[in-house]
Amino acid sequence: MSSYALAIGYALFLWWFSTGVILYLNGLPRRTYPVSLIAATALMVALVVLIYLVRDHDDLWGAYLGFTAGVLVWGWLEMVYFMGLVTGPHKQACPPGCTGWRRFRLALGASIYHELLLLLIAALLIAVTWGAANQLGTWTFVILWLMRWSAKLNLFLGVPNLNEDWLPEHVRFITSYLRKRPMNLLFPISVSVATVVMSLLVEAALELPAEGFAGVSLILAATLLALAILEHWFLVLPLADGALWRWVTTSGDRESTTDGLGAVDQKTVD
């Protein structure tokens, strides 16, 4: 079981630290964005190559490398949206009185190019790992993708915590498409389904050798899914999730506190 404890600890650290780094870079003055994006894009290309290189490595190194690459590829996609490189054609706040499908279409227009980029990256990862022994990098990406869409829909339908103060000024218009309300009908369904899937992953892992590739891969995926579920709960519970990344907002050269990003917003609003 020590292998599973290590996997859980590693997934927690990677989620916490990588989120903090992205928040820090997004909160720097906008003149730093080109350098950050060039470096991050070069890293993303290397990570896709890494996912390809470890696709036949069904050992512990293959599991950790594939998982790490999947998480960091996702991080690149977060950066390119919030730094304004790839967004959508619609960059205005929601018009007064706009409701229903028109509101949904305009909200989608704020990020449609980014959504298409997500599809492209997902297709690329599926292609490079198709039929391979190690597809953890791809499945890691898919988990983040599906849970982000779940969180986005919940934000659109209405939750108590939007954390709009964390968003950079140039994308804060997005919050005009979100709704603040105590609860929506999708939230309990999305959280319940994700929790059942997470439980099944853990159950399957416990039936496998703790030192093996399959068991560790399932635990890594289950931990990431648990963290995504936790981020859903951050949307409705009065919890100060920003305290987890306080070191981001209290260190370095920051433009202002209103130009930072909250972890939940960064992963779900775009």
Rank of each mutant, 00 (worst) to 15 (best):
122 A>K: 05
122 A>G: 13
124 L>M: 07
127 A>L: 10
131 G>Q: 11
132 A>Q: 13
132 A>M: 09
133 A>H: 00
133 A>G: 15
134 N>H: 04
135 Q>E: 07
135 Q>Y: 01
135 Q>H: 03
137 G>E: 11
137 G>Y: 05
139 W>F: 14
140 T>P: 02
141 F>T: 00
142 V>K: 03
144 L>Y: 00
146 L>T: 04
146 L>S: 01
148 R>I: 08
150 S>T: 06
151 A>P: 02
153 L>W: 12
157 L>M: 12
158 G>Y: 03
159 V>L: 07
160 P>A: 12
160 P>D: 06
161 N>D: 11
161 N>K: 12
169 E>P: 01
170 H>P: 04
172 R>S: 15
172 R>L: 06
172 R>N: 13
176 S>G: 10
177 Y>L: 12
177 Y>V: 06
181 R>L: 15
185 L>N: 14
185 L>Q: 14
186 L>N: 08
188 P>I: 08
189 I>E: 05
191 V>A: 15
197 V>T: 10
201 L>R: 07
203 E>G: 13
205 A>L: 08
205 A>Q: 09
205 A>W: 01
206 L>V: 11
207 E>I: 02
211 E>Q: 15
211 E>D: 15
212 G>W: 08
213 F>D: 01
214 A>Q: 13
216 V>R: 09
217 S>F: 00
217 S>Q: 05
218 L>Y: 07
219 I>E: 02
220 L>C: 05
220 L>P: 00
223 T>E: 04
225 L>N: 01
225 L>A: 04
226 A>C: 15
226 A>T: 07
228 A>V: 03
231 E>V: 04
231 E>Y: 03
234 F>P: 02
241 D>K: 12
244 L>V: 07
246 R>H: 05
247 W>H: 08
249 T>R: 07
249 T>Q: 01
251 S>L: 10
253 D>G: 00
254 R>K: 13
257 T>L: 15
257 T>F: 13
258 T>G: 10
259 D>C: 04
264 V>T: 02
265 D>E: 14
